[in-house]
């Protein structure tokens, strides 16, 4: 953003909280010169029908994402750890809900 050669407005990711008590959810992206403008535009682009009560905008360049090629390495190890789920354990019926 500091380079004077920049002609295009930078990209921002938009997160909207649809109602109080729920999390902010990613809903899309947009171009804006700065954070204040990004918020303003996010309101017009993503909440024209009361879809939100709160907005976050984050410069897209600031997001670090996991690499799709690492998917196996990152997530597969959890697949064989079924003892992490409550259904792994058998409890006598007379105990009732636990």
């Amino acid at each position: 953003m500091n380079t004077p050669a920049l002609k295009e407005w930078p990209l921002w990711e938009v997160f909207v909280r649809s109602k109080q008590g729920l999390e902010h959810k990613h809903c899309g992206s947009l171009h804006a010169a700065d954070a204040a403008q990004a918020l303003h535009m996010a309101r017009d682009v993503y909440t024209r029908r009361q879809e939100g009560v709160s907005i976050w905008v984050v410069p897209s360049a600031a997001i670090t994402a996991s690499n799709p090629d690492d998917k196996g390495e990152l997530f597969d190890p959890a697949a064989d750890k079924i003892y992490r789920h409550p259904t792994f354990y058998e409890i006598p019926e007379e105990v009732g809900h636990m």
Binding site: M1, N2, P4, L6, K7, W9, A32, A33, D34, Q37
Partner: peptide
């Protein structure tokens, strides 16, 4: 668009 970028740079 130019003015918005110039403003951001100044800020």
């Amino acid at each position: 668009r130019d003015a918005a970028l110039a403003y951001t740079r100044k800020q």
